[in-house]
């Protein structure tokens, strides 16, 4: 009963506001100028971005610089979380050693994980590399890619992933390669009289720059997420011991 009163008040306020407001807002009847530009130029026009996928065209061509800053927000967030969990070299080595035997899950889960990880790699690559033709793109593909290490961490352990060579440093290197790739693809057309952060037809194979943007974004996002997951998978006990706090 005590909870019911605030909920009722909130619902009443929301519905009241909606009722009052709805009469005052004029319905949008015409396409706005910006929307008209996209409609006329992307799919229903002359394909000025040279991509049948309108979302990718808008993201990497019409509003390329916007995407640049969007991506930088995401990577600032990743850099922030990496700074929070900053360890020096010795501490990092310590975090990689398993203190006690980690119990792994059953054979069923491990086998299925192996199959699914392979499938996820294929699916995410197809999402990213077909991003200029079908719905999808670098960020979506990268997010799908990041599920693979997450599954391995859950089914095996963080140490299994590190033993195979994918530790935090390598993930960060991969991410940096992705980011440098995006910067190069954006800047390279300038040397040949093109424009910055657009789909430029100067790359000899595979059409324009969209596929390269998507591929490098895929690499950067997937590796960035993997680095954060690896950090979060460090057991709290180990972390407290390294930092010398608690207990």
């Amino acid at each position: 009963m005590k909870k019911l009163i605030p909920i009722t008040i909130i619902i009443l306020i929301i519905f009241g506001l909606a009722y009052v407001m709805s009469g005052k807002i004029e319905p949008q009847e015409n396409v706005r100028a910006l929307g008209k530009f996209y409609l006329e130029n992307s799919y229903f026009g002359d394909y000025s971005a040279k991509s049948p996928e309108v979302v990718t065209a808008i993201l990497w061509d019409y509003r390329g610089v916007d995407t640049l800053f969007e991506t930088s927000v995401f990577f600032l967030a990743i850099i922030g979380s990496l700074t929070l969990f900053r360890l020096n070299k010795k501490q990092e080595k310590e975090a990689k050693e398993r203190i006690e035997k980690v119990e792994e899950l059953t054979l069923v889960i491990k086998t299925v994980t192996k199959v699914i990880v392979a499938m996820i790699l294929a699916v995410s690559a197809s999402i990213a590399l077909h991003g200029h033709l079908t719905p999808g793109g670098g960020f979506q593909g990268g997010s799908a890619l990041a599920v693979a290490p997450l599954l391995i961490i859950a089914a095996y352990s963080k140490y299994a992933l590190e033993k195979q060579g994918l530790d935090k440093t390598r993930a960060l290197i991969l991410r940096s390669i992705g980011l440098i790739g995006i910067a190069l693809i954006a800047l390279l057309p300038l040397t040949k009289g093109g424009f910055i952060m657009q789909n430029q037809p100067i790359f000899p194979w595979l059409g324009g720059s969209l596929i390269f943007y998507n591929f490098f974004e895929y690499l950067a996002v997937g590796a960035g997420f993997t680095a954060v997951f690896l950090l979060l998978a460090i057991p709290e006990k180990v972390f407290k011991k390294i930092l010398g706090v608690g207990e």
Binding site: L105, T106, V108, I109, V112, T113, V115, I116, M119, I120, V123, A155
Partner: peptide, 18 residues
């Protein structure tokens, strides 16, 4: 997608029960 969900859902239920 169907095959992935088919594999993942059964393994996930197994993992939860375990």
């Amino acid at each position: 997608t169907g095959i992935i969900v088919l594999l993942a859902a059964s393994a996930g239920a197994h993992a939860l029960a375990y």
